[in-house]
C-alpha cells in the first residue's frame, strides 16, 4: 500500500506532463502559421517533426512485434513500402484521392503481413529475422522489376501537395492512437499472450495459447499501421522509387529507436525516436554524410553498454533485455 501511495504523485506528474506535451504538439502548427515561417517554428521544423512522429509510429510498430513477442523483424520496412506503393500507384495511375489510398495501403500491408507471417512465423529466432530480411530484399527486387505497375527503378511521381500542417496532424494523430492502442493491448489478455510467447513459447502453447494466431495478428496489426505511415510518407515526399521506399536504414531506425528507448516497453520507442531525431537534427546535421556511419556505431554502442535502453536506465525493468531474449530457453 505504501508503495502505491508513494507512486501516486509520480503518476500524476507523468500524466500532466504528457498532457502538456500533447497540447504543445497540437498547437505547434498554429505558431508556424502566425510566424510566417520564420519564427521559432517554421515549415522545415514542422516537416522534421512530422518525420519524427512517423518514426515514433514505425518504431512502436516494430517494437510491438519484436519487443513484445520477441520475433526480431529485420524486414519491417517492407510493409512501409507496400503502403507507399499502394498510395503511389493509386494516386498517380488511377487518380484516386489521398485518403482512400491509405486504407488500401493499410489493408494490403496488413494482409501481406498475415500471409508472410503465416509462413515465416513458424521460424524461430535468427531464422525468422533473416527470412524477413530476405522478404524485404525480395519485395524491393519485385518493385524494381514490375515496371508497368511500380514504375520500376525510375520511380513514380505523385501529384504534389505541400500542406505541412496536414501531414503533421495526420502523423501526430496516428502516433498518439497507435501508442495508446499498444498500451491498451499490452494490458489485455492478448498482450499477456504475446509476452508469454516471448518468454516461453512452448510453454504458452502448452497452456492453450494459439501462438500462430497471436503472432500473426500482432504482426498484421503492426504492418497495417506501418502501411499507413508508408502512404503518408509517399504523398508527402511526392516521389517514390524502390530504393528510397524499401530503405534498409529505415528498419535500422526503428530498431535503434526501440533499443535506445527500451525494447519491449511501450513508451521506450517513443523516447528513442524523439532522441534519435533530436540527435540527427541537432548533433550531426552539420556532417550529414556521416550520419549513417554514426547510426551504425550507435546501434553497436547501445548493444554493448546500454542494452536496457533509457527506460532501463531509469530503473524500469519491465522491458526486455536483449541479452536475455532467446537465452532463457537456452538454459533448459
Amino acid at each position: 500500500m505504501l508503495e502505491i501511495a508513494q507512486r501516486q504523485p509520480i503518476r500524476w506528474l507523468r500524466r500532466s506532463g504528457l498532457l502538456v506535451l500533447l497540447v504543445v504538439l497540437a498547437l505547434l502548427p498554429l505558431l508556424a502559421a502566425r510566424g510566417d515561417g520564420d519564427g521559432m517554428v517554421n515549415n522545415s521544423t514542422l516537416f522534421s517533426l512530422t518525420q519524427m512522429l512517423m518514426l515514433v509510429t514505425l518504431a512502436s510498430n516494430w517494437n510491438f512485434v519484436s519487443g513484445l513477442t520477441g520475433y526480431i523483424d529485420f524486414g519491417h520496412v517492407a510493409f512501409f513500402g507496400l503502403g507507399a506503393y499502394a498510395t503511389g500507384i493509386l494516386m498517380s495511375k488511377a487518380g484516386w484521392p489521398f485518403l482512400p489510398t491509405l486504407a488500401v495501403g493499410a489493408l494490403s500491408a496488413g494482409a501481406a503481413a498475415v500471409l508472410i507471417g503465416r509462413a515465416t512465423m513458424h521460424l524461430k529466432g535468427p531464422y525468422f529475422s533473416i527470412a524477413m530480411l530476405g522478404t524485404f530484399a525480395a519485395l524491393r527486387e519485385i518493385a524494381r522489376v514490375a515496371r508497368p505497375l511500380t514504375g520500376g527503378g525510375p520511380g513514380l511521381t505523385l501529384p504534389p501537395y505541400l500542406n505541412r500542417p496536414l501531414f503533421y496532424y495526420l502523423a501526430l494523430g496516428q502516433a498518439v492512437l497507435v501508442v495508446a492502442l499498444y498500451r491498451w493491448v499490452r494490458r489485455t489478455e492478448f498482450g499477456l499472450m504475446m509476452l508469454g510467447i516471448r518468454e516461453d513459447e512452448p510453454g504458452a502453447e502448452m497452456r492453450g495459447v494459439n501462438t500462430i494466431f497471436v503472432k500473426t495478428s500482432a504482426f498484421g496489426l503492426a504492418a497495417l499501421s506501418s502501411g499507413i505511415v508508408g502512404g503518408m510518407w509517399a504523398y508527402q515526399n511526392t516521389f517514390i522509387d524502390p530504393d528510397i521506399v524499401f530503405l534498409d536504414s529505415r528498419t535500422i531506425d526503428m530498431a535503434i529507436a526501440s533499443v535506445l528507448g527500451g525494447l519491449g516497453t511501450i513508451i521506450g520507442p517513443v523516447i528513442g525516436a524523439g532522441l534519435l531525431y533530436w540527435l540527427r537534427d541537432v548533433v550531426w546535421a552539420s556532417f550529414l554524410q556521416w550520419h549513417l556511419i554514426v547510426q551504425g556505431l550507435l546501434l553497436i554502442g547501445i548493444m554493448l553498454v546500454l542494452p536496457n535502453g533509457i527506460i532501463g536506465l531509469l530503473g524500469d525493468r519491465s522491458g526486455l533485455d536483449p541479452r536475455r531474449i532467446w537465452a532463457r530457453r537456452r538454459k533448459r
Partner: peptide, 16 residues
C-alpha cells in the same frame, strides 16, 4: 550472449 545481440551488432557493423 544470445544471437539477437550479435545480429544487431553485426547489422550495425554492416551499415557502418
Amino acid at each position: 550472449r544470445p544471437p539477437l545481440v550479435s545480429l544487431l551488432v553485426t547489422y550495425g557493423l554492416a551499415i557502418l
